[in-house]
Write a protein that binds this DNA or RNA. Structure first.
Lengths: 169, 169
DNA sequence: AGGTATTGTTTAAAACTTGAACCACTGTGT
DNA sequence: ACACAGTGGTTCAAGTTTTAAACAATACCT
């Protein structure tokens, strides 16, 4: 089958998206790194915990929410635990399991840095969009997420290992 | 000043965006890693070169297009040069400068892997969007990029160093 | 000529990711 | 009960990437 290339309009949209998402992630990471001392993913871990009942979540559940491997999460939580923002506890109902708990210190960090973070997001995105565009953005992103997760229902990175480049150098 | 939190609609849009962009970048990276043996950024370097006149671009120009530091680009191009996809040449008009040139091998790699990449992008995004949504996506992303680049006209990551976390562990 | 700005690289340290191996436990079937 | 496959989560070693800072070479300006 012959390749269905992107139309000019799709091309433009795609380029814009790549540029914007790259710029955005850099901006957010920089700001978060400066004010909270951690990259976006780590901040998201704290944010998710802060909203969970009792400020605690099972490791696997957290990994699924954030769409990352358990291995990666273990590394991240260990770091956050060293920072004092999170604490690990054994799971009462399943002795294999662990729950990550947001500490008071972590909550304080979150409350201290959230305004700056929101400000970044606002300045980069929402201050310049109409209410209609906000709705459009949500729908488009929802559609993308659905498309990706539908394909291989919920398959996570670690389920489909990919070939490493042959180390020839 | 009191924080202007996100409205419920903005909140939903933001969450959707974070999820979608994370999933999307993972998907694209995995596919590109498997088929081209390189992550998205590196592929973009080849793509940009392939469209440049004479398949060549000055290092700094390339860094600006991709919005990355020169240091980061140096590393990436060195890797691509080892892979044989890119070659460095001195710049005739400025003896300080270098240009990255896409080799025939690099072009072949690009042509071989582009269909798969487009297929990924299409499956994840454009196959599920209406033409109107494609236009909306472009406008929204354009607006985001403008907002970020306008702020500190073109300031790049290396211009504004950020504090590293105090290594307390 | 002299001073400053650019270009791009190098360096060393640090952060992060990966896949595989692994242990402890759970749940199921017999 | 008992074997035994499956889960939850961590550890491990290796590799990739990123960072900031320092540097050499050249260009530009006065």
């Amino acid at each position: 089958m012959t390749t269905r290339w992107l139309s000019p309009a799709e091309q433009r949209a795609w380029r814009s998206y790549v540029s914007a998402s790259s710029l955005l992630e850099d901006t957010i990471d920089r700001r978060l790194q400066a004010e909270a001392g951690m990259p976006h993913l780590y901040y998201s871990i704290l944010a998710m915990l802060s909203e969970a009942p009792d400020r605690r979540l099972r490791m696997t559940e957290l990994a699924e929410i954030l769409k990352i491997t358990r291995s990666r999460l273990t590394y991240a939580v260990t770091r956050l635990e060293n920072d004092g923002a999170v604490q690990r506890e054994g799971c009462p109902t399943d002795k294999r399991g662990h729950v990550a708990v947001l500490t008071d210190e972590g909550m304080a960090l979150l409350e201290r840095t959230a305004p700056g973070h929101v400000e970044t997001v606002r300045a980069a995105i929402f201050d310049h969009l109409t209410p209609e565009q906000v709705g459009q953005l949500e729908e488009i992103c929802e559609s993308i997420a659905r498309a990706i997760q539908g394909e291989n229902s919920g398959a996570c990175r670690e389920d489909l290992p990919w070939r490493r480049r042959s180390s020839t150098s």
